[in-house]
C-alpha cells in the first residue's frame, strides 16, 4: 500500500496512529484517537513538534479521554491533511521520575470501593499505591487531573448521590480515573484518601502539579505521619 490511502489508516508495519480530525469552528480541530494510549502518544508528538518549532502556531492543545483539541490554528484544514502522514512513536514513560503524592488512605468510601473490588480495604491501599498513574488530561477545576493506570476490573461507578462538599486534598476514584481535589467542591467520586499536597498554586511555577503526561505514584502514610 502506498500513499493515497484515505482517512487515518496506518499502512502495515508503520507506526502511524489511526486518527480522525474533526472540524471545530474555523480555527480548530478535534483529533479523535482509538484509546487513551494513542491520545498520550499523539499529545506527546504534538508537544515535541511544538518544542521543535515544526507545529503551526496554536493557542490551545487540550488532550482528553479519546481526543486532542487544537484551537487557534490559522489553517486547520492543512494540518488535518498532514496528520495521517505523521509517524508517531508509542508513548514512553519519559525521563522525568513519577511525582510522589503522600496519601492517608482514610477516605469514607474506602470500604465501599473494597466491596466493589471484591477485596479488603488493605488490598485497595496496596493495589492503588502499587500502581503508576499517568495524568491523561485535566479539567473540572484548575489543577484537577484525570489519572489513569488502574486496570478495568478496578474501575468504579460514581456515587449514586454526589456530595455537596468534597474536602480539599481528597483522593478519589470514578470510572477509570483517580483524581485529587485541588480545592473543596461538590463531587460524586468515591473518596479513598486524603493528601496534603498543594496541587494548584498560581504563584508557583508550575502552577499545576499535574499536567497531561505527568506520572504519579501515591505513597501511603499513616494518619499521624503526614503533617500539613
Amino acid at each position: 500500500m502506498s500513499t493515497g490511502t484515505t482517512g487515518g489508516r496506518a499502512p502495515a508495519g508503520r507506526s502511524r496512529l489511526p486518527l480522525r480530525p474533526l472540524p471545530v469552528g474555523d480555527h480548530g480541530l478535534l483529533v479523535e484517537l482509538d484509546d487513551d494510549t494513542a491520545v498520550e502518544a499523539f499529545h506527546a508528538e504534538l508537544l515535541r513538534r511544538a518544542a521543535a518549532g515544526t507545529l503551526p502556531a496554536v493557542r490551545e492543545i487540550v488532550p482528553a479521554a479519546r481526543t486532542v483539541l487544537l484551537d487557534g490554528l490559522a489553517d486547520p484544514g492543512r494540518l488535518a491533511a498532514e496528520l495521517p502522514g505523521w509517524d508517531i512513536p508509542p508513548a514512553t514513560a519519559g525521563d522525568r521520575p513519577a511525582i510522589e503524592i503522600p496519601v492517608r488512605y482514610d477516605g469514607p468510601d474506602l470500604a465501599d470501593v473494597a466491596a466493589l473490588w471484591d477485596t479488603t480495604p488493605e488490598d485497595v491501599v496496596r493495589i492503588h499505591s502499587g500502581t503508576e498513574f499517568h495524568v491523561a488530561f485535566c479539567g473540572f477545576a484548575p489543577g484537577f487531573g484525570y489519572l489513569t493506570g488502574l486496570p478495568e476490573r478496578h474501575h468504579v461507578p460514581r456515587r449514586a448521590t454526589p456530595r455537596t462538599k468534597v474536602p480539599v486534598g481528597s483522593v478519589a476514584l470514578a470510572g477509570p480515573y483517580t483524581g485529587v481535589y485541588p480545592r473543596s467542591s461538590p463531587g460524586g467520586w468515591q473518596l479513598i484518601g486524603t493528601s496534603d499536597v498543594e496541587l494548584w498554586n498560581p504563584d508557583r511555577d508550575p502552577a499545576a502539579l499535574f499536567s497531561p503526561g505527568t506520572r504519579v505514584r501515591f505513597i501511603p502514610v499513616s494518619t499521624e505521619s503526614q503533617e500539613a
Binding site: 471545530v24 490551545e60 484551537d71
Partner: peptide
Amino acid sequence: PSEGMPLGALQVPPNGLPVLFLNDHP
C-alpha cells in the same frame, strides 16, 4: 468521553437546549 471544549462551542446538554460557551466555559 470528556473532550476539549473550545470557546464558541454550541454544546447540547440532555435537555436539548443549546448552550453557547463564552469565555468562562469549562
